[in-house]
Simulated scan of single mutants.
Amino acid sequence: MRGGGQRGPPPSATRGIQVAGSETIAARRRFFGDDAVDPASGAVRADRVLVSWFGCASFAVALGGVVFLLDAWVPRGLTAGYVPTTPDEVATLDPAAIFIGHGHFDHAADAGAIALASGAVVHGTAEHCATARKQVGGAELACHELGSAASAPGDRYDFDLAPGLSVTAVRHLHSSRTPRHEGADASTPVRPKPCLCDIRAYRPGRSEAGHLARNLLAPEGGVLLYQFRVGDFTLTWHDSSGPLLDKAPHVLDVLRTLPASDVHIGAVQGYNQFTNGLRDPRSYIEALRPKVFVPNHHDNWLPLITARGEAFVSPLHAELARMPEGERPEVRMLLDRDDYLAPGCLAFDLS
């Protein structure tokens, strides 16, 4: 097993609550739906996979009854209230764990505060853990370190989050621009115009601007892809899509060794879209072989350089049309702001 991989639960991963408080019950019902949460205990249905988007690449997940977060940032800074929740409410979900894909502000800027408030175990590289602790003044946080910024792309880490819930983390690359590809493998550049309308409609205040300024230069700290498995169900998530075909093709070989994904939540917006379109996200999809693909990191979270998710609908379908028809996944497109905290939007049966 590469990269110092290990099995066994990280510290406190199997904690959980027998009876949730009223605020946790209310938050879970808001994120996952009234019919998915026991109104007395706060337990989330263990026979369903429930995923709730709260901006950029951040998701609250209930898998096999275990609640956890993928990334930890409620988008704000150039806007306020664009995503209808707060870090306090996310913490009130009482997640068992927070999985950090990489350490930039738009993925991990609320990790420390949410972990401190909820007791969630942070999972990420040593640098991700250090950044989360720095956010809360050096307070001690439970952290499961998965390598460091110096770990090699392709390194793999295996462990159990809870009984019956296994996790694999794979080191990969952040999105970056590469030279324009020509010929049969060339993809059409994606260059949506910035949508400034949301800055006017959701004007930020001093606290939102200050939060962005304090976290703007947070280090990447390495990039991790995570796959979660319960029974025969497989969920894979990554918050950046790097140029693996050009810089680390062996990582795609590692991804091909993983079980095919029932649901793959993957980043589509990235630096290489301006040169090589959605070629990089397609390479992840081809390697992970999902039944359902859910785009992320494609909403208007930074309106000076981003656009609303609708700008990616046609380019994504055009890119997937390059795959053989029988290998194309079903696309569950998430559109801001309609699909933030939308119970049932991403709900799947465990069978």
Rank of each mutant, 00 (worst) to 15 (best):
D246V: 08
V90P: 04
V313Q: 05
E145S: 02
L302K: 06
G344M: 00
P303T: 11
A120G: 10
N215M: 11
R133Q: 03
R200C: 13
R229K: 12
V294C: 06
A307N: 15
V90E: 09
M323F: 08
G147T: 02
A213G: 10
K134V: 06
A111Y: 07
P219W: 01
A260R: 03
F233T: 04
A72F: 12
V49W: 11
D299E: 11
P189V: 05
S187Q: 06
A152V: 10
G8D: 03
K134I: 00
G326C: 03
P204L: 04
G221M: 00
A162K: 06
V313S: 07
P192A: 02
D280C: 01
P281Y: 00
D35I: 06
L216I: 13
P194S: 04
V51G: 03
D158H: 03
L165R: 00
H128E: 06
A152K: 08
R282M: 09
I100N: 01
S175C: 03
R279Y: 10
R200D: 14
Y226A: 00
G64M: 07
D232I: 10
A108H: 11
V67F: 02
P84F: 01
T168Q: 04
F348W: 13
E127A: 13
H238S: 14
R203A: 14
G266K: 02
L63W: 14
Q135P: 11
L346G: 10
V74G: 09
Y226M: 01
A115R: 01
D88T: 14
D38W: 06
A186M: 13
Q273H: 07
R45G: 07
V294Y: 07
Y202H: 09
P84H: 05
P249N: 14
R332K: 15
L225Q: 02
A186W: 13
A109D: 15
V263W: 05
G8N: 05
D158E: 07
L288M: 07
D106W: 12
H211W: 10
T257V: 11
T14Q: 13
A139T: 07
A152G: 09
E319F: 02
S58M: 05
L50M: 01
P303C: 10
I199E: 13
H172I: 03
